[in-house]
Amino acid sequence: MKYALFLGCTIPARSRQYELSARKVAQELGIEFVDVEEFICCGFPVKSSEIKSAMVLGAYNIALAERQGLDLCALCSSCTSALTEVAHHLAHDTKAKEEVNESLAKAGLKYDKGVKVRHFARVIYEEVGLDELKKHITRSLEGFRVATHYGCHYLKPSEIYDGFDQVENPHTLDEMIALTGATVVDYVNKKRCCGGPLLAVEEKIALAIAKEKLDDIKTAAADAINLVCPFCSVMYDSNQKSIETAFNASYNLPVLYLTQILGLAMGLDRKELGLNMNVVKTKDLESLLESRRQKPSQE
């Protein structure tokens, strides 16, 4: 299993713990990531202003992977949807492909058939598979109560994702978390958006949307949130303090990437997984896990 690793903009600059833990977990699972230096923005943030420019950006990145003969593996859900959408669109629209190729030619590239684009969580679920993943779990996270947050673009729009997972009843992340021995906690409004894309438009509304989910997860008595997108992490982890201040609330809810949780269950240590770089402190997590292992909850 060999993929061109698509980091996007946010992860390498703002979410290095995600990149670090993803690379470590990939290594454990025997997945080889190839770094392509020329990758640039996926196009997602430009779509609302200029859809054609977004398509050029997406096609440029896919064409780079195609030149190397590699499928794309993205860590960010928004990058995944932006790139998958372009691949989906250009596979069906020859006129759009011609137009895009006029722009790419100026950069010495050509978009021919494109490549398959997938989120890393999807690669683990589909290509590694649950049976193989289970073999790598060496430390049970029994008693650890995790609320999974799927976010939006990991699953949607469903028409571009070949029937992967189910929009109204998503289960892939839950299955992977359950494999670690952790308890997947159900909560109200599980499918709700993090509000991230509104941060640049109206911060107050973005934070209000994120707050609702933090409330619901707190009510469900989860120990941590699990997610797969740096945008969502910006909302729940980086902005948790701002939400607490703005709404006079208190959460203290660690926000972990799927790769950090899988990594813990693989016996990797907190520094290898960048847990020291999370904004909401995760220091107490290890002792919590230890105590839960000795005294699993009643559920």
Binding site: C152, H153, C193, G196, L198, V201
Partner: peptide
Amino acid sequence: WLCSSCYS
């Protein structure tokens, strides 16, 4: 501009 593009 307030659409978060969540596709719900």
